[in-house]
Write a protein that binds this DNA or RNA. Structure first.
Lengths: 123, 123
DNA sequence: ATACAATGTAGAGTAAACTCTATGTCAAGA
DNA sequence: TCTTGACATAGAGTTTACTCTACATTGTAT
């Protein structure tokens, strides 16, 4: 299937301005039809989903850009891309660990508040 | 103990510009000495650590601002603050779950790459 | 006495990632 | 034929959270 930018925008939940911005930043390169309109494919959909995953895990656009560049070069860059992902996996892991630590402290604070409120209510 | 902005900056790993910015945004209100210099206390240190925790878990400055406002009003706002933390706890939990999901997908992708690379190497 | 280092204020500048505006083209329906 | 509505480009504007600059003041070491 092929999609116009409007359709693709709905499928991806990314505004059409954002899609054009991503193209401008070379993250994605949709084809064009005879009228110069963008033609997105299902492959683009998979790719955008992956971009969103990288973004959601804190990878900056610049780095995704680099990944996209390697991807465009195809097979010879496979291992370099894998190394990027492995390194990203590491930071993601650290991120999760830190958030869990924060969660623990937050829980402690909430418990503290709970005790405070109880002791005031009892007065 | 009391600290000058320079000392406090080192203790907190926040630049002095950032500390003044936080003050401007009413996140923290250090006392002043006779010469109008800022005087940070150990209580400020604990508070800044908590601010950092909220920031690191994705709470925007505006919301921390609101929390700080309630905190300044003292005891009567205890339960409202606790509710904020409970609600934040929920989003933090969702955040962690989503990152774990992303991690899973990332691992799958890495494994896929590994197999690709192996099959090419064997050629 | 004077130079220096840290501090003060006010306001400008920066970076990232969008988001919007102005203006123009073009195919399809009334 | 005329008018929408979706799309195109180029470039300006926005938001968040800093970060820096310019300039004034002040306590301390030489």
């Amino acid at each position: 299937m092929e999609y116009s930018i409007g359709e693709f925008s709905k499928l991806t939940n990314l505004g059409i301005h954002t899609l054009r911005y991503y193209e401008h930043e070379h993250l994605i390169t949709p084809g064009r039809n005879s009228n110069n309109r963008r033609c997105y494919t299902d492959k683009d959909l998979t790719w955008i989903d992956f971009i969103k995953r990288l973004k959601d895990t804190g990878m900056p656009i610049k780095e995704i850009q680099h990944y996209a560049e390697l991807r465009a070069k195809g097979e010879p860059t496979l291992s370099e891309r894998m190394e990027m992902l492995i390194s990203h996996r590491k930071t993601l892991n650290e991120q999760i660990n830190q958030l869990q630590e924060h969660m623990k402290k937050l829980d402690e604070k909430i418990e503290f508040y709970q005790r405070q409120i109880e002791s005031i209510t009892r007065e």
